[in-house]
C-alpha cells in the first residue's frame, strides 16, 4: 500500500515537473537571448548585436505563435476550448514565416553583419530546447523522476 502511494506521489511529481517544460523553455530563451546579445555586443560590436537581438525577438514571437497555433489545432481536434476558424489557425501558422522574412529583409537592407546576427538569433529556440533537455536529464537523475 505504501509502495503504491509512494509511486503515485513520484508520478505526480514527475508530471508536475515535465508539465512545466514550456515555461522553462521560455525562461531559457529570455536568459540566453540577453546573455548572447551582451556577449556579442562586447566581442563583435553593436551591428551584429542588434541583428542578434532582433533575431531573438523574432524567435521568441515565432515560438509563441507556434504554441498558439498548436493549441488552437488541439482545441479543434479535441473539440474543447474556444472554437477558432481553421483559416485563422493556418494564417497564424504561415504568418510566422512572413515575419521572419520581413525581419531578415529589413535588416539585410541595413547591414550584412546584422543579418548574420539575425540568423544566429533565430537559433535561440534550439538553444533553449537543448538547455531544457540537459536540465531535465540532470533533475530527473538527481530526483529519480
Amino acid at each position: 500500500m505504501s509502495i503504491d502511494s509512494s509511486a503515485a506521489t513520484s508520478d505526480a511529481a514527475a508530471e508536475k515537473f515535465y508539465s512545466g517544460a514550456m515555461d522553462r523553455i521560455r525562461r531559457f530563451m529570455a536568459v540566453i537571448g540577453v546573455i548572447a546579445t551582451v556577449a556579442v555586443w562586447i566581442v563583435l560590436g553593436w551591428k551584429v548585436a542588434t541583428g542578434l537581438a532582433l533575431g531573438c525577438v523574432i524567435a521568441w514571437v515565432n515560438f509563441y505563435w507556434l504554441k498558439q497555433a498548436v493549441g488552437a489545432l488541439a482545441d479543434r481536434v479535441t473539440a474543447t476550448g474556444r472554437r477558432q476558424s481553421s483559416g485563422g489557425v493556418v494564417a497564424r501558422f504561415l504568418l510566422r514565416y512572413a515575419l521572419i522574412a520581413l525581419g531578415a529583409y529589413a535588416i539585410f537592407r541595413v547591414s550584412r553583419d546584422s543579418l548574420y546576427g539575425l540568423l544566429g538569433g533565430l537559433f535561440l529556440t534550439v538553444a533553449a530546447i537543448f538547455c531544457e533537455a540537459v536540465y531535465e536529464v540532470v533533475v530527473s537523475l538527481r530526483r529519480g523522476l
Binding site: Y18, S19, A21, M22, F63, L66, K67, V70, G71, L73, A74, V77, T78, T80, L119, L122, F123, T125, V126, I129
Partner: peptide, 30 residues
C-alpha cells in the same frame, strides 16, 4: 492530431512533443 483524436486525455504531452518537434524541424531548414 491522430493521437489527440484517439486519446484526448494525453493532450499536454502530445502538444509539448509536437511544439518541440515542429521547432526542431524548422531549425533544420534554418
Amino acid at each position: 492530431v491522430e493521437a489527440l483524436a484517439r486519446n484526448p486525455a494525453a493532450r499536454p504531452g502530445i502538444q509539448l512533443a509536437l511544439i518541440l518537434g515542429l521547432a526542431l524541424i524548422e531549425s533544420l531548414a534554418l
